[in-house]
Amino acid sequence: MDLLDIFHYGFVQRAMIAGVLIAAVSALLGLFLVLRRFSLIGDGLAHTTFGSVAVVLLIGISPLYVTLAALPLVMVSSLAIYKLTSSRKINADAAIGIVSSLGIAAGIILASLSGGFNVDLFSYLFGNILTVNNTELLLSFIVFLIVVAAVIYFYDDLFAVTFDQELAQSMGIKTGRVNVILFLLTAVAAVLAMKVAGIMLVSALLILPALTALQLSLSFRTTMIAAVGFAVGAVLCGIVFAFLLNLPAGAMIVMFNICFLFLVFAAKKLSHLRR
């Protein structure tokens, strides 16, 4: 098969457009999360997505709307992580652990109540970007627009809060509001990323492009652009190679993200050695 032939398939086109939009959103938010040491929030929210999907499947909502229907519960979970963390009595990693465990446990119990694990629930564990439907494509586009608009509008506030939350407070920035927006957008990104990479690999889409871009030691704005570039590159390469080699797209996307990280890391080491 000619490489260009794969772009003629409607499902591949949908996968690529949705993948690019979701990867860009995840990378944008991921940079703030990584710098604020919330890297594992993607994992936590992915696990609560598992519980939310189980709820949605149990009450019999059509698979076409599962992503949409799972959103409210994951957003509530994200706010729960934020509330637990901001109480200063529980560290971020522990708060993520609590909500994450609750999500998985609830998912398993609900799956059991519904008569055992079924194929639908398992398909969300590993994701399949090639099955993106028109509803999810539209949702990805809307979320992309919202996240980009929010990052542009709140850029100064997000930058200050990421640099130092107390300093941001002393500048009159409503850090609580900024944090709630960041956590809610992350919840939406995590639910969408589930479709791309599966619940098991959601955090990779949030963490890896940001980590790769950070190795380049660029300014904040340029780091954001670089993170989006790496994320989009990994999605496009991942989908093409997954299709050509008949391998799972989500795992291939993550593998390309890791390859980019190692390549940039190696190039950086090499340039240091040459100096």
Partner: peptide, 13 residues
Amino acid sequence: HFPGTVAEIVQMG
């Protein structure tokens, strides 16, 4: 690893 330049930090806000 914070990717802010001195110019970005000083002009923050």
